[in-house]
């Protein structure tokens, strides 16, 4: 994926002032920066939730600029939400299966009459779903309604929903947010494992420095909507601009 010179304004505020970077195949790219630096905005431009005013985002040779949101997943772009956006009245399993919606082709009539096509499609989705539930240790709560589950579990449900969609690029917005220290360590291991078994790229938007630095192949750092560093975790960690930006913010909890 290539992001070229993307600009985004909110009224007078310049949230992104011409940012460019690339994410390679099977690469894990961390996107870091202090609060308000434009990480979420970048994330939303890529996933089509915001419309950038200039520049282009190209994925696998297809320009994403101006593309309908519901078509993103067909191209292989999966995502999670920073504040968890699950279907609250539905079970864990059903939430996940919605992620397989775009892989199906059957409509109202085939489903209402349980035509062979519909049952075959459903069985295939459920089979793959069962594997993903096992992988993310969600089997025990598979038939629980999600609204009753703890935050950390719900984040894993979101991950399951994104994974069943067979993404080529997985966008994760602050997956460590709200997790305990132990959970964050497990998450790091999980992200590495998922990249291995699902053969995909990951864009990891994260405030949590140690997590980003430990799993990323490359890191892009933003400040005030500009890119201030781009390289391996070690290069970025030692970049004076990055040190200044993070010291300036004064939160060594994440450093």
């Amino acid at each position: 994926m290539r992001v070229a010179d993307v600009e985004m304004h909110f009224g007078g505020i310049v949230a992104l002032a011409g940012v460019s970077f690339e994410v390679g195949r099977r690469q894990i790219c961390g996107l870091i920066g202090p609060n308000g630096s434009g990480k979420t905005t970048m994330f939303n431009c890529i996933s089509g939730f915001y419309r950038h005013s200039r520049g282009d985002i190209v994925f696998d040779g297809t320009s994403l600029t101006g593309m309908a949101r519901h078509r993103m997943i067909d191209l292989g772009i999966g995502r999670t939400f920073q504040n968890v956006a699950l279907f609250r009245s539905m079970t864990v399993r059903d939430n996940m299966l919605v992620g397989a919606h775009h892989l199906g082709r059957t409509g109202f009539i085939a489903n209402a009459l349980r035509l062979g096509r519909a049952t075959a499609e459903e069985a295939a989705a459920r089979r793959r779903g069962a594997e993903i539930l096992a992988l993310l240790e969600l089997e025990e709560v598979a038939d629980e309604v999600v609204s009753a589950l703890p935050f950390g579990t719900r984040k894993r449900v979101e991950l399951a929903r994104a994974l069943i969609s067979e993404p080529k690029l997985l966008l994760l917005d602050e997956p460590a947010g709200g997790l305990t220290h132990g959970e964050v360590d497990e998450l790091g291991a999980l992200i590495l494992k998922l990249r291995q078994s699902f053969d995909m790229s990951i864009l990891l938007v994260e405030h949590h420095m140690s997590l980003v630095m430990s799993v990323s192949d490359k890191v892009v750092a933003l400040e005030f909507g500009r890119k201030i560093a781009d390289g391996t975790p070690d290069e970025v960690r030692n970049e004076p601009e990055v040190i200044r930006a993070y010291l300036g913010e004064g939160d060594d909890e994440h450093a």
Binding site: R88, H101, A118
Partner: peptide, 21 residues
């Protein structure tokens, strides 16, 4: 089935439903 889940998904959380295609 597939369609019913999509109906409920739209009702519960339309933005996420859209992101799921």
């Amino acid at each position: 089935g597939r369609i019913g889940r999509a109906l409920k998904a739209i009702r519960d959380q339309p933005l996420a439903a859209e992101a799921m295609g």
